[in-house]
Amino acid sequence: MSAPMHDCLIRMVEDEHPLEDYQSGVPRWCSGCGDNAVLAAVQRLCRDENLRPEKLAFVSGIGCASRFPHYMRTYGFHGIHGRALPIAEGVKMARPDLHVFVNTGDGDCCSIGAAHWLHAIRYNMNMTVVLHDNHVYGLTKMQVSPTSPKGLRSNTTPHGSYLDALNPLTVTLGVTNVSFVAQAVDWIPEVVHAVIQAAFHHKGFSFVRIIQRCPEFLPKMWEPWLHDPQKTLLLEHQDGIGYSAGLQKIYKNRQAHDPADIHKAREIASCIDPIPVGILYRDDSVPCYEDIREAGKPRPIEMVRSGLEAELDKFTVWPDAADAGAPTP
């Protein structure tokens, strides 16, 4: 009963999808942009899991990263600034059978959409959320973002930005019902792929922050980290992600971390240098809002009819009190 019996029948008509089957159009991101790495990782995930393109919905807001859905040959919804999460929640609530992904940037998620972000964590709906964090507004041409480092000279802070950066990981880990938090850097594609894969398999709101370089506006920001492997900290655990031998050869700075430990996760999350990558936190026991609300429950016409009639009964004045149909309290 557990195995959908038609799987084998579907396989009869369908070869596995190569990567190109998930590709639509030519990305118009700048060359060298980290969004490309995420796109490749997500497409690999789709191929590896043999996900059916029509069952995927990519939802985004506004910003460079939010162009993401346009480059996937799946269903996509490129929405308005900051509102990707509530749109995605609506999609998931209406259609729990769809795999929902959200691509959002640091401005989209942490600034204009910050309220939705907090509540989305609380709803814990089953979706994979990728925060493409390049620490700057790109599409609107170089303004400071909530995650920009203090002192950043941008078009709105020509004398350097005034505030310390917001840390999306500690914020997420501080919200009730948080169930999955991971981080990767765009320059280690293997980790990007591994955390997105783990996020996809987690049932709940899977929050993945990708630290990205903006080749146009912040080309040098992550140079030290690119050149010094010691400045990246690989989190390892049997419940975490694995690293190839090749990667372990380069990145020797590793730390055991049990993703079930939220206190440790918060401690690690607050570390900015070295950058921790891998799974910081995972709790499979948090219920999903769409399950609590029994979304997708079959809804026969009879159910609606009888429900409506029962309600109408409550308010009905019958032509004659002796009428058989009159409600008797």
Partner: peptide, 28 residues
Amino acid sequence: ERVGGIVHQAEDEIAACTFAIGASYAGK
């Protein structure tokens, strides 16, 4: 809920509207 429906009290008016838009987009 008795007829299989869901009232979602969103975190704000904008979320309520975009949530409804998401659901409508997805077919309902």
